[in-house]
Nucleic acid binder design. Structure first.
Lengths: 222, 222
DNA sequence: CTGCATCCACTTTGATACTG
DNA sequence: CAGTATCAAAGTGGATGCAG
């Protein structure tokens, strides 16, 4: 291309030998980390991402996916057996972003304030919040799995030997306890905990695991 | 004239009730977290920031500072005693970003590769790297302070009862050990460790604390 | 349908010049 | 020292087009 083009592309770089600067060059652009949030919760098709990220222009989504793929953070896969088409998933390097995403999400949660009208709660946010508030001490040596159903979405949390896995959709395998919360819009995590704590959730399965759930996922004292 | 657009469109809100989304709205714009990196290492005047962030347009720096101030993340203070003028510093909320910044920096460090010609190492990056690689176990109960001098910059690391503080500039109080490394350009953290480990650094003070330093700040095994 | 590409209005950025 | 002003270029948001 032309000289000015090369020069300006270079200006997307910060020209600093710094881990933070490199991270921001790779995933710091608009919508970048939100795409990664979705992919942390499950492999996604293009259309899943568009639905989970209302407001993202399709060309921007397209561009971000291309960049993430080139950077080795995400990969484009042919969807397995029953479906067909394309799915995007994180690579090992991409999954390495989880601690950073959780740390940002924890800080941002302190800045959230009250839910504004028109602000939706993405299902992936709930899956991530489960990881963000997880208390490993309370789950030491535990084996259990839960599925939360509300407002037409499902998410799961599985603890194997104290190790947590969460995601959007149904758990791989039967959940030990299904927690169903009636709602029109996706509720906040706080609202889910409250409903479960107050007995307003419909429980299916090992009901004794409700208390365990509340212990493992109690958010930090406010 | 479509003022109706201006409201919905130019708005940088993601319209999601999500900690990650809120964090990105507040500090996710270009240069935002790099400004915060500088302020994590020391209070800065406007000119300090311009010098530490070569390439940042002055109007963008101006805009970011205004946004950070409005968000309650940074504050504009009158410089104390000897100097005068303005300094910017993080608020309590701003300092809360440290875990997220460190997590991003740790991930980005794995993506750094070799230093490219023209890529500088900001002093604030070294101060942050000290925190990122700090090994609290190795420093349990320790009291010690170091100052690193190289290529015209200084940074310090102070451990009080095992608690770490680092920053750009001279330590508050006399450092127990000064580690001076000859260099024209600011070296990488790896290069500093290597020079210190190979006896190529000039030591002033309690030389026995060199081994302690290397133990406390050994980067994760590669 | 899915998975993008293209067009266009508008915004933000980057580079430079300038001021109290 | 601590910013503002200006302007071209790149990026974003929104709508639409279109092939498989």
């Amino acid at each position: 291309m032309q000289l000015w083009y090369a020069k300006c592309m270079g200006s997307r770089d910060f020209r600093q030998y710094c881990g933070l600067a490199r991270a921001l060059e790779l995933v710091g652009e608009r919508w970048g980390l939100l795409v990664i949030r979705e992919l942390l919760a499950r492999p996604c098709r293009y259309t899943d991402l568009r639905e989970s990220l209302p407001g993202i222009p399709t060309n921007v989504l397209s561009a971000r996916l291309k960049e993430l793929e080139e950077a080795g953070i995400a990969e484009r896969l042919l969807a397995p057996a029953p479906q067909r088409g394309v799915v995007y998933a994180l690579t090992e390097a991409g999954r390495g972003l989880e601690p950073a995403v959780l740390a940002l999400a924890r800080w941002g949660s302190t800045q959230l304030g009250a839910q504004q009208p028109g602000e939706l709660v993405p299902a992936s946010t709930l899956a991530l919040t489960l990881r963000a508030v997880f208390n490993p001490d309370a789950a030491h040596g535990l084996n259990a799995s839960w599925e939360i159903r509300t407002a037409g979405i499902a998410l799961y949390a599985t603890v194997s030997d104290g190790q947590l896995a969460t995601g959007v959709g149904s758990a791989p395998g039967e959940p030990d306890l299904v927690i169903a919360v009636q709602a029109d819009e996706v509720p906040t995590f706080r609202e889910i905990l409250q409903a479960a704590g107050e007995g307003k959730a419909e429980l299916t399965g090992r009901q004794d695991l409700l208390a365990t759930f509340l212990r493992c996922f109690a958010p930090p004292r406010a």
